[in-house]
Design a binder for these strands. Structure first.
Length: 291
DNA sequence: TACGCAATAT
DNA sequence: AATATTGCGT
């Protein structure tokens, strides 16, 4: 059975966004990669090991997590090169290995048909075993990228800084740009603050719907955390460290993708562990202040 | 240009 | 569910 009639134009490489891995979709992927021999790279904003395996097992040459940076794209031609090597020389082990060493390792996995990723590229013993698992087609894929969070998590600490900025400015003056300036968090965007502010205001509206009779608002009430037991859990915590830097890559080449945020300051990982993006941390996970 | 807000997307 | 984006009126 063939999904594709006629010949595909002279494509050297296909970079595709994820599609639902239905049986048909995966068969098309197989046909493109095997019958037509076009290396196909899949992009996704997130993926677990089984998802990646699903595509790789069906012929995907690579699996890129968005946001895709230019450095990742610069090496993507390797897949075309490997394909040509496969066609012109069945015994390409030496050349393949030399090529492997000449360039940064591929992000996650390569097609089983392609040259296997060498263990020398893995830095830790654990990663070595993981690489072997990938190539043996039965194991967990673990990559640092798997931990990459694509969206900002408003941790209690970060929210505290947000609130501090809002309180400092006052109700009327608290606009995203000024909040951003006061928070002093590198790479935090105005849009992110605006989004959070919008949600925060909605919360205040619900939580404190009434104003005083003469129409004046109650700024101290509205913005004073102490008056809201439901939020005290977040507001009453002492600030033990200021979050000052979140990185937001500007070179995202994947369309419509979310952006990665990561720490980029000088704190050691241990010092920073309470403020990681991991949402599965109970204590410092996403801020649910009853919005 | 920035803002605010609702709707919508991821 | 939380956050991001978009669209449109100020």
């Amino acid at each position: 059975m063939s999904f594709i009639s006629g010949n595909l134009p002279g494509l050297d490489l296909i970079i595709s966004d994820v599609f639902f891995p239905t049986e048909d979709g995966l068969l098309i992927l197989q046909e493109v990669t095997t019958k037509f021999g076009i290396p196909t790279v899949i992009m996704a904003s997130s993926a677990d090991a089984s998802t990646v395996m699903k595509y790789v097992a069906n012929g995907a040459a690579d699996f890129l997590l968005k946001p895709v940076r230019i450095e990742e794209l610069r090496n993507i031609w390797q897949h075309v090169f490997r394909k040509q090597m496969r066609e012109h020389n069945n015994n390409n082990i030496m050349v393949g290995n030399n090529l492997e060493r000449s360039y940064p390792p591929p992000p996650i996995a390569m097609a089983p048909a392609a040259t296997t990723r060498t263990a020398a590229e893995a830095s830790t013993p654990q990663e070595i075993s993981e690489v072997r698992d990938i190539n043996s087609n039965n194991g967990e894929i673990t990559d640092i990228r798997d931990l990459r969070k694509s969206r900002l998590s408003w941790t209690a600490q970060l929210h505290r800084q947000f609130i501090a900025a809002v309180n400092h400015l006052g109700e009327d003056k608290a606009v995203p740009k000024k909040i951003l300036g006061i928070m002093k968090v590198k790479h935090l965007t105005r849009e992110q603050v605006a989004s959070h502010l919008q949600k925060y205001r909605l919360h205040l509206k619900k939580s404190i719907p009434s104003t005083s009779r003469d129409g004046t608002t109650l700024p101290s009430t509205a913005l004073n955390t102490q008056n809201h037991p439901s939020r005290s859990k977040y507001f009453d915590q002492d600030v033990c460290m200021e979050i000052t830097d979140y990185s937001l890559p500007k070179d995202d080449l994947s369309s419509g993708s979310e952006c990665k945020l990561e720490e980029q300051n000088d704190y050691s990982l241990e010092d920073f562990q309470d403020f990681r993006w991991d949402s599965d941390k109970q204590e410092y996970g996403p801020c649910f202040w009853n919005f």
